[in-house]
Design a protein around this nucleic acid. Structure first.
Lengths: 234, 234
DNA sequence: TTTTGTGAACTAGTTCACAGCT
DNA sequence: AGCTGTGAACTAGTTCACAAAA
């Protein structure tokens, strides 16, 4: 009865997930959250079927998504929760702490800096950056320091920043993104509306609050009876 | 040379967009923003081709998306900017002010309440709701009042709230959503992580910040050379 | 027997390419 | 000539259904 999940089974890892869709990676993140819950609840193994039912997913899809990366299941049994959780964390790159900077120490930037959800899953909010002199040198409520945006490049040289979050007013977004790219940061989560240009080696993901609200407005305007339910924000 | 767009052409409006995809409605919102920019810049007409080039979209897709709702273009000319803008606003239900409430007056809720992007496109942030006594009765920096969450149902009866934004900690999300549904609100924008249940007549749209960040982490972990560029957050 | 992993079938979404209107 | 609106072709994503493994 000793920890089953410590048995290091020889998981056939796949050679190379040639091109994995964004929809799949988003779901991996969802699966990880489900597994965390199951693990906390003390569940040791789970079948794709049970996972699907409990979290309103499709069993075949779960299996397909996982199959891109290896064979993590046991036929007739299902998946060992702790083991699959560990694999997913590794696939998603969450087996090390990722350092995040937030550009813009306005309302939104400060709120994001102190957002507890980020810290939980392995993200370190390393710093905020702003242009306003009265903000520079201070810190957020949770103690994230606010630096001068002109220091970004210099600090990035010795600090390693993995991800930048853009929380500046729309007109400043493109110039700030340019600075971020110049500082060598390769992944950007953007909250400003509108289109941004980044070089091909930089991954940009945008959350557009206006688009989200307007799409709800559409639903209301069209007399919402065509079926609801939430879709995942990219 | 008088305002071309005031010529009230007989736009063949479509009977009923039987089932329009969420991807399409999100793009309508993007098109509207583009048209706003063009209008501000004084552009009077634009072809789908030019619109596509300028904002990195596909011309055929623009035409198809619009075709769900009617024939708004003029062959050989393109679209009248002001006219199409007006149509899109109407399709998206932005021709009236929508009243939005924000559940949770924490960092995120307060930041969203004062987010300038919302006010701009016809959304009224009507109120914040919280449980904490020390917050109730106060207001956000921009003057949005903070009410007791137990007052939601009562206030909803006389105030008409169209959309609720969920910005409470994860464990409170489901109970708060239940209150919102009970108060008769039919559209919800959710920022809390995890799955939420709503009845079929209520439209739920979720922005999952953890999923967004983890998907960037995946990109970094897989040695990001498989192509970047931003995707729209649902 | 149970449940995975996966080809095959299906469904949704995008892009092409062109007839037809201005 | 120029550009829309749209069927047809294509591409991507999901679900089915079953052979093979435990």
């Amino acid at each position: 009865m000793v920890a089953l999940e410590l048995v290091n089974r020889p998981n056939k890892r796949r050679p190379l997930p040639d091109q994995v869709s964004e929809l799949t990676t988003n779901r991996l993140s969802v699966y990880l959250r489900c597994l965390n819950e199951l693990d906390t609840a003390g569940v040791q193994t789970i079948s794709s079927q049970a996972l699907a039912e409990q979290f309103h997913l499709n069993a075949a899809q779960i299996r397909k998504d996982l199959a891109y990366f290896g064979e993590f299941g046991v036929r007739g049994v299902g998946y060992y929760v702790k083991e699959l959780r560990r694999h997913l964390r590794q696939i998603l790159g969450l087996d090390r702490r990722l350092r995040v900077v937030i550009m813009g120490a306005g309302n939104l930037g400060l709120a994001l800096a102190d957002y507890p959800g980020f810290r939980q899953e392995g993200f370190d909010i390393a710093a905020l950056f702003d242009i306003a002199n009265e903000k520079i040198g201070h810190e957020s409520r949770c103690g994230v320091p606010i630096h001068d945006v002109r220091e970004l490049k210099r600090l990035a040289r010795r600090e390693r920043y993995d991800i930048a979050v853009i929380a500046v007013p729309a007109p400043h977004a493109q110039p700030v993104v340019d600075l971020v790219v110049e500082a060598g940061i390769k992944a950007i989560l953007n909250f400003s509306p509108g289109t941004l240009k980044v070089p091909p080696e930089v991954k940009l993901k945008s959350v557009d609050l206006t688009v989200s609200l307007e799409s709800l407005s559409f639903y209301l305007a069209q007399g919402g009876e065509e079926g609801a339910s939430g879709a995942q924000g990219a």
